[in-house]
Amino acid sequence: MNNEIPSLFDVEVPGTSTAQTPLPVQSEQVAEIRQSFERAGITSQDQRKEIVESVTFRSIAGLRDLQAVEAHRLLKVLKSMQTPKPTRQGTAWDNREEDTWIDKL
């Protein structure tokens, strides 16, 4: 058997693999996190920091310190905290916003 061709059963020696560094948070993610905080009605910086640290399990000085994976998890949590818009019941006529000429008669 040729020694140059790797065998199917060759196992990589532990410790020789390179550890991947986590990706940093993207600017788009930071903007989306800020919008999600606003939509959820969370305006207090202390409350925001508490939520971020509860998701990341570590102390964070600012949103730019997040990793991309942590930002993704935070966005999922924030989206679940947002209050959904109430669905309207009835017809378009029942749900009209303005008075029509018939209403003014």
Rank of each mutant, 00 (worst) to 15 (best):
R64S: 13
D103P: 06
F37Y: 04
P84D: 08
K79L: 00
F9R: 07
W101S: 13
E28Q: 14
P14W: 08
K49C: 07
G90S: 15
T83I: 11
V30A: 04
E98F: 15
D10V: 06
E97G: 09
R64Q: 14
Q47P: 01
Q89V: 15
Q35W: 06
V69D: 12
P86M: 03
K76C: 06
I51S: 00
S80C: 05
N95F: 08
G90W: 12
V11E: 12
P24Q: 06
V25M: 03
V11Q: 13
E32I: 06
K104T: 12
I51W: 00
T100H: 07
K49Y: 05
I51Q: 00
K79W: 00
I60L: 02
V52M: 02
T100Q: 08
L75S: 01
G62P: 02
T83N: 06
I102K: 15
N95W: 10
R48E: 06
Q35V: 05
R64L: 10
P86V: 05
E70I: 03
S80E: 05
V77K: 02
G62N: 12
T21N: 04
V52D: 01
F57R: 07
G90C: 14
R34K: 15
E53C: 04
A19N: 08
E4L: 13
R96G: 08
Q26S: 15
W93N: 14
K104L: 15
N3V: 11
L8V: 11
M1P: 07
G90H: 14
A71M: 04
P86Q: 04
P6N: 09
D10Y: 05
Q26F: 10
T91K: 11
E70F: 02
K49R: 13
V25I: 04
S17G: 11
K79R: 09
D103L: 10
L78P: 03
R39M: 00
T16K: 13
K49T: 13
W101N: 11
K85I: 01
Q29P: 03
G15A: 11
A19R: 11
L23Y: 10
I51V: 04
A68W: 06
G90D: 14
E53H: 05
D94F: 12
S44N: 10
L63V: 04
V25T: 01
S7K: 14
A40T: 02
I102W: 13
T56Y: 03
A71F: 02
V25K: 00
L75A: 01
V55A: 01
P6E: 09
E50S: 11
D65E: 15
T91V: 11
P14K: 11
L8H: 11
K76E: 08
L74V: 02
K76N: 09
Q89Y: 14
V55W: 00
A92R: 15
A92E: 15
L63G: 04
K85H: 03
T43Y: 13
N95R: 13
R39Q: 01
W101I: 15
T18E: 14
S7H: 12
D46P: 07
D94R: 14
F9Q: 07
I42W: 03
D10W: 07
M81D: 02
V25L: 03
V52A: 02
M1F: 12
E70C: 00
F37A: 01
F57H: 09
